[in-house]
Write a protein that binds this DNA or RNA. Structure first.
Lengths: 176, 176
DNA sequence: ATACTATGAACGATCGTTCGTTCAATATTG
DNA sequence: CAATATTGAACGAACGATCGTTCATAGTAT
């Protein structure tokens, strides 16, 4: 997809059609307009989160699950296309309410699962008592995605960050 | 500035000129083109970081300094314009190398100062031993900026997040 | 008179979208 | 079964709008 190479606003509808292998006119038979293409794409992102939801719902010890999730999500974010597409959607979300809602909904699935895991860990004493597990879940994702962004920008492979990311996140939730 | 309202690519040169109170043609006497306007703007962001550098270089106990920095930076990020402009520059940086370099340089000033503070805290036992203080500094900023972004998107005031953000960050660096 | 800045009309390019047309597949006839 | 009618996907030329940029002209201060 060419949103990745040129960005949403830089990409013409002709580019999209050509890349998709359909004609300009035909694209409008499948999508109601350029905006709709972005919406459908944001929807696709939701499916990509499914493997992570599965990981998070495992019944293993919470710290083990968290560690596995961090590894898997970091691996997903090691692919620059995934990072750039997320950034693209994020920056559109600021100004387009329907994109914002999609983004928030997608995000909520992940944070809810992660938050539940954190809560479960706290209950059995594996994690410290968090003032707001949902917030903590958000911030864990932010750390991962932020690192992925810096990885793309500075052209340092995400793998180089993996260690300190895992260390940072675990330290913030493990009991003192 | 109208980059904030409509985004860089959505904003026409005519909008920029009108908002700046100069004529279309005259704008080209001050900037070499639209891209140059963005570059100059990214440069302005650097100055805005100065107060935070000052805070970080204070000689008080490291945890106190860190806490003060978090509060100040969170307050800065409580202004949506600041968040949106940062996001705007971030998403341009992915595809425009000169913006990327500016962004990285601006960022480096902050992370270096913060990293030095973390190191200082570790040396006197106020902070735990961090595997990579620079990385940790990056992630601390990511947590703050990520929360600010969610605050803008979900229209929840940043202030509501301040508590758990501070808790999260401190927990990740304080000794266990 | 000279050297500047300021102006907005004009330019070519490209934007997102529309629309008339083609055409192969399907349904309906006789 | 053959002939005809109907459908809807595919196409790309064309449209009006807007894009970033240029430039001839007008204004201003020295």
């Amino acid at each position: 997809m060419c949103f990745l190479e040129r960005g949403y606003h830089q990409t013409g509808v002709r580019d999209i059609a050509a890349r998709a292998g359909v004609s300009l006119g035909n694209l409008y038979n499948h999508f109601s307009g350029k905006h709709d293409v972005l919406v459908k794409f944001a929807m696709l992102e939701r499916q990509e989160m499914e493997p992570f939801l599965k990981i998070l719902s495992a019944h293993s010890p919470a710290p083990k699950v968290l560690e596995k999730f961090i590894g898997a999500y970091a691996k997903y974010l090691a692919v620059p296309e995934n990072v750039i597409l997320t950034l693209e959607v994020s920056s559109e979300a600021v100004r387009q309410p329907d994109i914002a809602q999609l983004f928030i909904e997608n995000r909520a699935e992940l944070t809810n699962s992660l938050s539940t895991l954190l809560q479960r860990g706290t209950d059995v004493g594996d994690f410290r008592k968090l003032p707001d597990p949902t917030q903590a879940a958000q911030m864990i994702l932010d750390v991962l995605e932020g690192s992925a962004y810096h990885s793309v920008l500075s052209e340092v492979p995400m793998r180089k960050f993996a260690g300190s990311v895992k260390d940072f996140i675990l330290s913030s939730v493990l009991p003192r």
